[in-house]
Computed example of a mutant assay.
Amino acid sequence: MEQKGAGETLQGFEKAALSMLEPLASLFWPGGRRARLSVLIYHRVLPSSDPLMPGEPDAAQFRWQMELLARYFNPLPLAEAARRLWEGTLPPRAVSVTFDDGYADNVEVALPILQQVGVPATFFIATGYLDGGWMWNDKVIEALRRMPDGELDLTEEGLEVCSLSNTADRLTAVEQILARLKYLSWEEREAQAQVLAQRCRVPLSNSLMMTSSQVRELHQAGMEIGAHTRNHPILASLARVSAEQEIAASKAWLEDLLGESVRLFAYPNGKPGKDYLQEHVDIVRGLGFEAAVSTAWGVASSRSDPWQLPRFTPWDRTPSRFMMRLLWNYRSVGVPLRED
């Protein structure tokens, strides 16, 4: 059955399911002192679906998700939502939308939808990739997309022989290689990804990531801008001084670009105790950020650590399941909690 936007008429099961979920949202998602905040993570919003990026929504899917948030929830900018959570003034069914990394489609595809629907969002920018850069994972994906059918021997690069006979094979190869490279040092990761990009012998576009002017466009449109390091390293793999430089440099660059303080930070990769450590939380706090987000699953409560707020990715493909996911996730307060 074809799904329409939440602002249009949903048919059959979807309409009935949403009508039952709406009162549940009001009943189990209170405001005030008992309020909880759901923070959603996005990276890209594609013009159309891409079989090599099945976790990224296309424009149509993103639109009905935002329409549902606007209709059934209370979307707030993250800085305001975090402040009101601790003050005990958060409205019921509060939710904040965030984007990581700084892809150009955030401006070209997502921003018009956010403006039309009336949902604010926060964009965490890895500043080192602006104005023509490529993140290592995107180099891997595009290289494997463009390789000819057959087998790809990557044993000389310390990887495996990959079958590229069809789209499913290519997706499997993407997932395996990304997993193998993810926790290498930043330099090793970049070098391996660049080797793959060179082997595909097709020039990569310089418009994948935002330009500096697009970051300003988001800001001028009333969207929040947060820092996300310069080069998106796994902070736990760096010496403390290098980690502090990565965080501080992205904050300073954005503040110079925007002419105002940058108050929010997102940890790259974001798993507490694995991708970043307590020392990095201390750095973020010391640099004057008012709040920071991880990728620990769950929702935030008044007991949540302001510099380690949990987030989750909404991957559901139908409106009723998307709503149910938000409600189910509300049951789980993410860790770590702040020390009283």
Score class of each variant (00 low, 15 high):
29 W>Y: 06
185 S>V: 06
39 V>L: 11
289 F>N: 02
335 V>K: 08
242 S>L: 13
210 M>H: 05
24 L>W: 14
311 R>K: 13
275 D>C: 05
59 A>E: 14
137 N>M: 08
188 E>K: 12
103 Y>Q: 06
260 E>L: 06
87 E>Q: 15
114 L>E: 05
40 L>Q: 14
258 L>D: 11
262 V>N: 02
235 L>Q: 00
339 E>W: 06
272 P>D: 03
72 Y>R: 08
62 F>S: 06
205 S>G: 05
300 A>N: 09
273 G>F: 13
174 V>F: 09
229 T>R: 07
153 D>H: 04
22 E>Y: 13
6 A>Q: 12
50 D>T: 00
45 V>N: 07
163 S>H: 12
81 A>M: 07
53 M>S: 10
55 G>W: 13
302 S>W: 13
135 M>R: 04
82 A>N: 07
169 D>Q: 14
332 S>T: 13
76 L>N: 00
130 L>C: 11
102 G>H: 08
90 L>N: 10
53 M>I: 07
239 A>C: 15
231 N>C: 08
26 S>R: 15
41 I>C: 10
57 P>K: 04
244 E>R: 10
113 I>F: 00
53 M>F: 04
284 V>F: 02
219 H>T: 09
156 E>K: 13
134 W>C: 08
329 N>M: 05
136 W>K: 03
193 A>Q: 00
281 V>K: 12
193 A>M: 02
192 Q>M: 14
44 R>I: 10
251 K>Y: 01
183 Y>L: 02
281 V>M: 12
180 R>N: 14
88 G>Q: 11
51 P>S: 07
213 S>I: 03
73 F>L: 14
71 R>S: 12
289 F>M: 03
325 R>K: 13
167 T>S: 12
213 S>N: 13
295 T>Y: 07
39 V>N: 07
117 V>N: 05
24 L>D: 06
327 L>S: 08
41 I>E: 04
302 S>L: 11
298 G>R: 04
316 D>G: 02
230 R>W: 04
320 S>I: 10
159 L>M: 14
173 A>K: 11
277 L>T: 01
19 S>L: 13
270 G>F: 05
110 A>E: 06
327 L>F: 07
59 A>K: 13
321 R>L: 15
327 L>W: 05
2 E>Y: 02
240 R>P: 01
190 E>N: 12
322 F>R: 01
192 Q>D: 02
